[in-house]
């Protein structure tokens, strides 16, 4: 009966415990535990040992220096502001470009739509790094693109403002431009998903009731696509705010973004408490609002 009991336990409960348990334990061990380590490190003290951190003994058990510096030091403060503003502008631009594109996708014929959707997704499957790199080539001072832009600029501005090339690389402008380029599909896809679900007869009903097309857009289409706007906005804003690759490659080294600061504090300065404290603050600033939003969203859906 022993084997029998074992197999009965497995059928009844064991298999579901396994199904839940394996990924659960994995995430606890390789995601939650490392994250808790970050939180713990943010309270430690930097030492010249390996690993460069210490608690207690000659040092305070909990050291809030990292947090104090993260919110008071102008370097970090500026980095936060630069990141949030750049990510914010990039998100807004993605929305302004992505919304008409998504709306356009819902209005073209079925066969075209599938091809165009594939073309939106295609860049997503190609290397992120290479998409950033493509813009490095275009923005460089001697590229055909830069030369073309320079020509246009020189033709429309007074002679005194003429330039030899546009200083595009290594600027916040370049960061925002490349962010828009790399994250635009993340805006278009959720927007398209929410716009595609809209009932076209609602549009027709509004037109029939005497609204002009732009009024229909404001009164009918836009309010119904808000979930798509929020989803797309979060998908762009959150990774953009913590971005490391783009600012490193095309950004202005004199005004670093927060992702770059975390990485530098950690790797070059070997200041684990500082890097960890900034990471925690960044998470609270970014993930906090997202969690609160999704909490209220779930509540609103639950009460329906």
């Amino acid at each position: 009966m022993e084997g029998n009991r074992l197999s009965r336990w497995f059928d009844r409960k064991g298999w579901s415990d396994l199904l839940i348990g394996a990924p659960y334990v994995w995430l606890l061990l390789f995601f939650l535990l490392p994250f808790l380590i970050v939180v713990a490190m943010s309270l430690g003290t930097k030492t010249p040992t390996a690993p460069p951190i210490s608690f207690g003994g000659d040092y305070p058990l909990f050291n809030f220096q990292g947090y104090v510096r993260a919110v008071t030091d102008t370097l970090y403060f500026r980095a936060f502001i630069t990141s949030l503003v750049s990510a914010g502008i990039a998100t807004l631009l993605c929305l302004l470009i992505g919304y008409p594109m998504a709306l356009g996708l819902t209005r073209v014929s079925k066969s075209w739509r599938n091809i165009l959707l594939m073309l939106v997704i295609l860049p997503f499957w190609t290397s992120f790094l290479l998409r950033v790199y493509a813009w490095m080539g275009l923005m460089g001072r001697s590229s055909w693109f830069n030369a073309g832009i320079t020509k246009i600029w020189n033709a429309i501005v007074p002679a005194g403002w003429a330039v030899d090339f546009m200083p595009m690389m290594h600027s916040n402008f370049a960061v925002v431009l490349v962010m828009v380029y790399t994250y635009l599909p993340f805006m278009i896809l959720p927007l398209y998903a929410s716009l595609e679900r809209l009932d076209p007869t609602l549009d027709e009903a509004a037109l029939d009731l005497g609204s002009r097309p732009w009024q229909v857009f404001l009164d009918v289409t836009l309010p119904q696509s808000i979930p798509g706007i929020v989803a797309g906005g979060m998908l762009v804003f959150i990774p953009a705010a913590g971005e490391l690759v783009i600012p490193t490659l095309v950004g202005d080294a004199s005004s670093p973004m927060i992702g770059r600061v975390i990485s530098d504090q950690f790797s070059s300065a070997r200041d684990w408490p500082m890097a960890s404290a900034i990471a925690v603050v960044l998470l609270v600033l970014m993930v906090g609002p997202a969690m609160i939003y999704s909490h209220f969203q779930a509540k609103a859906e639950g009460s329906k």
């Binding site: 995430l27 380590i37 979060m234 913590g242 992702g259």
Partner: peptide, 30 residues
């Protein structure tokens, strides 16, 4: 623990890569 589990399943989706990176590295070093 379902609540924690579903949290753990969504958190890596929105965690900035830099933070995931340094937390994994600290974990491995320690």
């Amino acid at each position: 623990g379902r609540l924690l589990f579903s949290g753990l399943v969504t958190a890596p989706l929105i965690m900035p890569e830099v933070i995931t990176g340094i937390s994994s590295l600290m974990f491995f070093i320690l």
